[in-house]
Nucleic acid binder design. Structure first.
Lengths: 262, 262
DNA sequence: TAAGCTGGTGAATAATCCGTGAGTTTTTAT
DNA sequence: ATAAAAACTCACGGATTATTCACCAGCTTA
């Protein structure tokens, strides 16, 4: 559950974004949103918060109630307590001195203009990215991808399915071969968008002359049997695929995609 | 001197920003700007760059010459060589799928809309902030080296495995040779990320002309036998490696990585 | 109903990678 | 200057990985 700490003085923005923020898929669970309309109230709350209330991310308006510095004072209070808390600004004053101060002096993780097309989506993307970056830092640089029961360590390229490491189906003592690993990673990254043979070839930096659809299919086969092997050759994963989860074929575009099991 | 790597396919943007970027006060010194108009040219350049040319920051356009993926392929080439290089996108397509891909999948440090008020200043602020963050991160990374049963004294360069000092396998009275020691250190530092031949060559400040994969393998062999020797030539360490711990081959990209035994 | 397409499969082949030993060049120390 | 050490090259075999091929089943369309 992602905990968001949000300070915003104008009700219409709160109305507009709160539902979006609550329902955004940040970590696969519902989010907890704590909103304050006044900087003072926010600061009082911060003063009494303990580590168990520690938010994962703060969203601030810089200019509030006529004061340029209102948001920054909240930021300082937060950073004093949790120096590594990522802070995003959400403001109407992009391109102004306020943005400059936020970015260059107040350790803002990001500064998002309220007036831009598709703002709800942009907000979610950026929050998600900030949380991901934060998590990567905390895990000792062990960045990872996670989707349901699947976990990919993007540095060591180990893949875990329900906690079990995926191995090479032809030789269970060896790790999964490189190309299947890469393909799986791309599929999960782009999930739930399908990846065509062409796109995969591009991502693998392989020549389309060399990388054919037959080829792609073969690697998918390897992956599926690796999953099956991780479950003890029960064929459970293959079934899952046929039910439209896991590694699924797209229909008629030489494409596959990844669909989380949860 | 801040080194910026910039890929932008439209001349008018280059004309508009290059003077600004060159003169921006990023670190008190004049900046070095390397601009490419074509993604292919940029990628070729990246392939031949060594660590001494390593840019401090990359500025990319995502959508170039009609392809959505052009900028991302440059990003991948850069990150492959320097996984920690901050990458900023400068694009006309904010709020679109391109921004989403950049932020959520391509580890963009930032995504800046070209069309916004005061764009020159915003660009400079954000570049400056990204550089600052990068620097702060680098300073925080200096920690002692210890990984499972392995211990490296970074001052005296002695290496201990299970408390036993690693010696030169060809002549047990002599210490481990310098290059293997360095390689081991880099592997452990970057653990569990694999290091390709190219990356090792960069880290050793050796010419890629001189430092080949055969070479890398040779040093790995030396290291493995040094570990074995420290255990009394039992071959215990070699076994460990085959089980995916210790010094492990990555299976692809001519790379090895270090995986702690604990 | 047959032809055309997609997707799954097993086996065979081709390509690549990795470990190794022995030899050569370069660097370093005496 | 000389010898030892270190770094680097080269070539080979075995193993792993990637690709290709042939075939089948199911579905859609002519």
């Amino acid at each position: 559950m992602a905990k968001l700490f949000w300070v915003e003085d104008q009700s219409h923005w709160i109305d507009r974004f709160s539902a979006v923020l609550k329902q955004a898929d940040l970590d696969g669970e519902p989010n907890h949103l704590e909103v304050y309309k006044f900087p003072e109230a926010a600061k009082q709350r911060i003063a009494v918060m303990t580590d168990q209330h520690k938010p994962d991310l703060a969203l601030l308006d810089a200019h509030m109630n006529g004061s340029d510095q209102a948001g920054f004072s909240v930021s300082r209070a937060l950073l004093k307590k949790w120096p590594d808390l990522p802070i995003l600004y959400l403001s109407e004053h992009s391109g102004t001195e306020i943005e400059e101060q936020a970015i260059t002096q107040n350790d803002a993780q990001d500064f998002i203009a309220k007036h831009q097309r598709n703002i709800e989506a942009v907000l979610c993307w950026r929050i998600k990215a900030a949380l991901k970056k934060r998590q990567a830092q905390q895990l000792g640089e062990q960045a990872g991808l996670r989707s349901g029961s699947l976990e990919i360590h993007t540095d060591s390229w180990e893949v875990f399915w329900k906690g079990v490491k995926l191995m090479n189906p032809h030789n269970p003592k060896r790790p999964l071969a490189p190309t299947p690993r890469k393909i799986l990673r791309f599929l999960v990254e782009r999930s739930p968008r399908p990846l065509s043979t062409e796109q995969i070839a591009d991502l693998l930096e392989a020549d389309l002359e060399r990388f054919s659809y037959a080829n792609y299919r073969q690697h998918i086969k390897t992956l599926r049997s690796a999953f099956d092997a991780a479950e003890g050759h029960s064929g459970e994963f293959s079934e899952l695929c046929q039910q439209g989860r896991g590694i699924v074929t797209f229909g008629d575009a030489h494409a596959y995609f990844w669909k989380s099991d949860s």
